[in-house]
Design a protein around this nucleic acid. Structure first.
Length: 279
DNA sequence: ATTAATGTTCAGAA
DNA sequence: TTTCTGAACATTAA
């Protein structure tokens, strides 16, 4: 589940305890489930990472990037249920990878925990990172893209605006939950073709993206229902109590009070919105 | 007890 | 070319 705000929260949580430390060893965990999918293999990643210092921890769209002194980057993709943890996993059975860190500090390992097991870890050299996770793969980050860029990109597609917001090539970082929240705040009908939106409406969407994502980061992400999202210390996020439409089918709209929130399905994903105040 | 649904991504097909 | 579907997997709600 982790979208931009959750991944940003993970990065901020682990950064102070991981940056500047060397990786002593990589260990696949003694969990009964299958190990995390890795490219290249576990042993060759181990070889290239062991003894190297983590020079930076950063977010790339919905991915967590550990940069090494060698120039390599180890990139974790949490997909649906992956977490980066310093301690207290929700259970021992879904710990899939451990990076042991040097020095004797508060935390001596960084863990990748993943209940569903769809998450991945991939090691890139500086060059392959640029070509394989570059602009042809990921559009400008949702917190960086300008209203003008958004407008140009929306003009190029006739997909529904909700579907377009999920396209990581168009803009990167927005997922299913925040797409609904963003369009609600912007007052836009999620089924509107992206290329039919006026510049004024695109500006509203751009502004709502900034507002919603920054607020969600401030509250350390959303944890609800099936979503097992937790921060680096296995604590829940706080933004779920701020959701205006997501997972609120049938509730009276808290924005206009005129209609119940509706759930529709677009390209097999749930969208929540208020038919009265989103036009 | 089955079945449907779950926040992501990607390959392959329409 | 653009857009959509199904699968990867594990767990829960219906």
């Amino acid at each position: 589940m982790p979208e931009l705000p959750e991944v940003e929260t993970m990065v901020r949580g682990i950064r102070p305890f991981v940056e500047g430390r060397k990786v002593i060893a990589l260990r696949r965990c003694r969990c009964s489930c299958k190990p995390i999918a890795m490219t290249p293999s576990f042993s060759s990643i181990s070889r290239r990472v062991k003894g190297k210092k983590v020079t930076a921890v950063r977010r790339l769209a919905k991915r967590v990037v550990l940069e090494f002194s060698s120039g390599d980057s180890l990139v974790f993709e949490p997909r649906m249920t992956g977490l980066m943890l310093l301690s207290d996993p929700p259970d021992e059975g879904h710990l899939r990878l451990e990076l042991q860190l040097d020095g004797k500090k508060t935390f001596n390992s960084l863990w990748f925990w993943d209940r569903r097991g769809l998450g991945t870890a991939r090691l890139y050299s500086a060059e392959t990172l640029k070509t394989e996770l570059g602009p042809q793969k990921l559009g400008p980050d949702a917190l960086v893209i300008t209203a003008q860029q958004l407008r140009e990109r929306f003009q190029r597609t006739q997909r529904a605006i909700k579907v377009a917001l999920l396209d990581q090539k168009l803009t990167a970082g927005i997922g299913n939950l925040y797409a609904s929240e963003i369009l609600h705040l912007a007052g836009i009908d999620p089924t509107t073709p992206a290329n039919d939106l006026s510049l004024q409406k695109v500006r509203k969407i751009h502004s709502a993206i900034q507002t919603i994502l920054n607020e969600a980061i401030r509250y350390e992400g959303s944890t609800l229902g099936d979503a097992t999202y937790r921060n680096a210390l296995n604590q829940s996020g706080g933004y779920q109590s701020k959701h205006l439409v997501y997972s609120r089918e049938g509730d009276e709209c808290c924005t206009c009070g005129k209609a119940p929130i509706q759930r529709i399905v677009q390209t097999q994903r749930s969208t929540f919105y208020c038919p009265a105040c989103q036009k």
